[in-house]
Computed example of a mutant assay.
Amino acid sequence: MKQLTFLLLCVGMLFGASQASAQTADKSKGGPNAEVKESTFKVYGNCGMCKKRIETAAKELPGVSKANWDMDEKKLTVSYEDTPGALKQIKEKVASVGHDTDETRAKDKVYKALHGCCQYDRPNSN
């Protein structure tokens, strides 16, 4: 009986150690156990259509759980899995739908295709 108890205890410890190792691996690559970070940065736009477009673009990326663009402050707050390059990817995604950020400029062709009320005064450089 003691041998069976000892054997079950050993199996349980091995299983627990493998689970902890898997969780550590998930965190380093992103995934369900990655650390969630919140960042706020400048995003240019004007109206409710801009808000929807900006927030939708950000939330389309894997790992982004929240996106809220403040129309008055022209700032986007995002919650996302803190993986290498994640914030840069979010800014590039927002720029890809026509909205300049503090670091990424939208392509002229995409910006010019925005609805007239969405064409904000563009900053000189990013």
Rank of each mutant, 00 (worst) to 15 (best):
K2R: 10
K2F: 10
L4Q: 05
L4C: 09
T5N: 09
F6V: 12
F6A: 14
L9S: 14
C10H: 14
V11L: 10
G12H: 00
M13W: 08
M13F: 11
M13L: 13
S18A: 15
Q19G: 11
Q19S: 13
S21G: 12
A22W: 13
A22S: 15
T24F: 15
K27M: 02
K29Y: 12
K29F: 11
G30R: 01
G31T: 07
G31P: 04
P32V: 14
N33F: 09
A34C: 08
A34F: 06
E35F: 02
V36W: 05
K37H: 13
K37R: 11
S39W: 14
S39D: 09
T40C: 10
T40L: 07
V43E: 03
Y44G: 00
Y44A: 01
Y44D: 03
G45C: 13
G45H: 08
N46F: 04
G48L: 07
G48E: 11
M49S: 13
K51N: 06
R53K: 06
R53D: 00
R53G: 01
I54V: 08
T56I: 05
A58W: 01
A58L: 00
K59I: 00
K59L: 07
K59G: 03
E60P: 03
L61S: 00
P62Y: 09
V64P: 01
S65E: 13
K66F: 04
N68K: 15
W69E: 03
M71Y: 13
D72M: 09
D72T: 14
E73L: 14
K75C: 08
T77E: 04
V78E: 00
Y80R: 01
E81H: 07
D82E: 11
G85L: 02
G85Q: 05
G85C: 04
L87W: 10
L87Y: 12
K88R: 00
Q89E: 08
K91C: 01
K91M: 06
E92P: 05
E92K: 06
V94I: 06
D100T: 05
D102I: 01
T104L: 02
R105K: 10
D108F: 09
K109S: 12
K109A: 11
V110F: 01
K112I: 02
A113V: 02
H115D: 08
C117R: 11
C117E: 14
C118Q: 05
C118P: 03
Y120R: 06
Y120H: 12
R122S: 02
P123I: 08
P123W: 14
N124D: 15
S125N: 06
N126D: 03
N126R: 11
